[in-house]
């Protein structure tokens, strides 16, 4: 099977899989996730400052995260 056919098959399988995914944590079960203590970056100004402190003194950089967290519910 050529590479393009494999990619198409993989994409089709992924899409088929996505369409059948049901949220296994229901919106009414997300009270804990919505708590402010469940945030990856509760205080962004403080978090950015600590990232700065480390980046100025370490060779490593990137993937510091800080994409929110919480319940993901509107």
């Amino acid at each position: 099977m050529c590479l393009r056919a494999r990619c198409l098959l993989l994409t089709a399988l992924l899409l088929a899989g996505c369409s059948s995914i049901e949220p296994w944590v229901k919106p009414y079960e997300r009270a804990h996730l919505a708590d402010p203590i469940m945030s990856f970056d509760r205080d962004p100004v403080s978090g950015a400052y600590m990232t700065h402190v480390y980046q100025a003194r370490e060779a490593a950089r990137g993937a510091e995260g800080g994409h929110g967290g919480g319940c993901g519910c509107n």
Partner: peptide, 26 residues
Amino acid sequence: AVTRQVTGWLAGSALLCCSLLIRAGV
């Protein structure tokens, strides 16, 4: 220390902006 401070802070600032702004759906 200055050059590293600046580049480090810039990356940190980019993180700050993204962390504030990349939170999908809300």
